[in-house]
Amino acid sequence: MSAFKNTGHLLRFAGLFVIAFFIFLIVRHFVVPKSFGEYGHYRGNAIKEDAARPSYYAGHEACEGCHSDVADKKSHGKHAHVNCEACHGPQLAHASADDPSKHKPVLPDTTVLCKQCHAASAAKPKNFPQVGDDHMPGMACKDCHNPHSPAMDQAPAEKTASTSKAPQGGKK
């Protein structure tokens, strides 16, 4: 006789333990996603899912393919490094459409748009061109400036009031 009287109890218990272990392995095989641990302690496919999200901004290269005239004009002016969608908003729907005219972008209102960057404030860098409210009140910026190349093409003639101040680097 062995030292233990009831070895059978222990063997049955050990048997249950082994069975439970295999059940655990089977369940784990099905429950843990295939890509878990592909790169680390996380689901590898989460990276691919994130990369597959839809986009809304097309990027300026997409615009320049068709609108080469604007791109050319812009490239010689002060706004050469301002990308198209910074002012025109997200345009992937327009750029990727079979018929882009069906997704026509809304023309921005220059009385609102230009101020977002150029409204005078002491908080802005001193060398950034800024205009105060006293510069041509009531007029749209594009009446005198081409937004794609905003240098003054011509003096605003009779519109130039003696009180108006030209925008300069620095605040008004």
């Binding site: 990276i47 994130d50 990369a51 597959a52 999200r53 839809p54 986009s55 809304y56 901004y57 990027g59 300026h60 706004h79 490094h81 301002v82 990308n83 969608e85 910074a86 960057c117 950034f128």
Partner: peptide, 23 residues
């Protein structure tokens, strides 16, 4: 922020960098 992962993996820049007017 995920650095616009769907854009940078396509060779584009992020939406914030794309639209920053002063770089």
């Amino acid at each position: 922020c995920d650095l616009c992962y769907h854009r940078i993996t396509q060779g584009l820049t992020t939406a914030c960098c794309e639209n920053c007017p002063t770089g």
